[in-house]
């Protein structure tokens, strides 16, 4: 076991999967010679050569569209959108083809590709570099959407995504790429897609979050515990398909739920989770499920981003509100 950060976990998963399966190829803007602007693909070209890890022309639609053709002709492309905010030119390819090829051809052609994207804010970046677009992708039938929050999960989930026979959008929390290290097994392993994880057990309220928001949410849980409130915390890990069983089991136990995400509130995954809770656990509820999210605004430039991102304090206030509902 070695202690590595989340970014190194991405690199390690890619390296191990490329070693395991010669069909796995990696390409995107700057991913080859330079190893990516964040260095997620560093040394892969050196190790596997220019036919396995390539620099692409600067064209997101083509990175995905060419990847589709490569997947159809026997390869497993793991492509990078340099920032999730630059994935929008590739939307037509993702929505119209990546997600549909299997269904369109009734299983004759499949697109087992992974589209990696660093997502999220809090890195004092320029416009378009802080987006959290998971809801767009989760809305599209035919895609799976994964958002890890730790180095251990990142390595296991990325390996699972690469081995998955369906296309996976893999959103990496770039804010915590290098934030902390964790002991991660050197051998390869899989964390199943579609399974959430209870990362803190509790009895009073269920907090659901994913990706970079896990740290804020866990801090908020600690602050709440100091005040005698014991939240259960779920790391959703897979945004599509959502692990409803884990969510519902927890909410049935606690009777209360808050969803935390940094994407805008309206149309976000928080709303979907609240709907699931209402459908499946209504009679167990002690208070209406609610959420702490980004605002319905574009992500602010760095001088204002501290207001946009949910903080442990904002989450704590909401926890107290929900726990004291009608008392």
């Amino acid at each position: 076991m070695a202690a590595i950060n989340l970014l190194q976990a991405v690199n390690e998963a890619l390296r191990q999967e490329m070693k395991r399966d010669p069909r796995v190829i990696v390409f995107g803007e700057d991913v080859g010679y330079e190893g990516g602007v964040f260095r997620a693909t560093v040394d892969l070209q050196k190790e596997f050569g220019k036919d396995r890890c390539m620099d692409s022309p600067l064209a997101e639609s083509a990175i995905v569209g060419v990847g589709i053709g490569m997947a159809i002709n026997g390869m497993i492309p793991v492509v990078e959108m340099q920032f999730s905010g630059f994935s929008y030119p590739a939307f037509n390819q993702i929505i119209s083809h990546v997600a549909r090829m299997r269904n369109r051809s009734r299983g004759r052609y499949t697109v087992p590709m992974v589209i990696r994207m660093p997502y999220g804010g809090g890195i004092r970046a320029l416009e378009h570099h802080s987006e959290s677009p998971e809801a767009f992708f989760a809305h599209i039938p035919g895609l799976k959407v994964v958002m890890p929050s730790t180095p251990y999960d990142t390595k296991g989930l990325l390996a699972a995504a690469i081995r998955d026979e369906d296309p996976v959008i893999f959103l990496e929390p770039k804010r915590i790429y290098r934030a902390f290290k964790q002991e991660v097994p050197e051998e390869d392993y899989i964390i199943p897609i579609g399974k959430a994880k209870v990362v803190r057990e509790g009895t009073d309220i269920t907090l659901i979050a994913w990706g970079a928001m896990m740290r804020e949410t866990l801090k908020a849980a600690e602050l709440a515990a100091e005040k005698g409130i014991h939240p259960e915390v779920i790391d959703l890990r897979t945004i599509a398909p959502i692990d409803r069983d884990t969510v519902i089991a927890s909410v049935k136990k606690t009777g209360r739920a808050i969803i935390v995400h940094e994407a805008p509130k309206t149309g976000g995954i928080g709303g979907e989770l609240m709907a699931i809770i209402n459908e499946k656990a209504f009679l167990h509820l002690e208070a209406p499920p609610t959420r702490v999210t980004g605002f319905d605004t574009p992500f602010p430039l760095p001088r204002g981003e501290q207001h946009y991102l949910p903080s442990p304090e904002r989450i704590l206030v909401k926890i107290q509100e929900v726990v004291n509902y009608l008392t």
């Binding site: 569209g65 060419v66 990847g67 589709i68 053709g69 997947a71 159809i72 492309p77 390819q93 119209s96």
Partner: peptide, 11 residues
């Protein structure tokens, strides 16, 4: 949009 797929298949 499908021109991209042809390039990927060929590549």
């Amino acid at each position: 949009s499908h021109l991209q797929h042809a390039v990927g298949i060929a590549w």
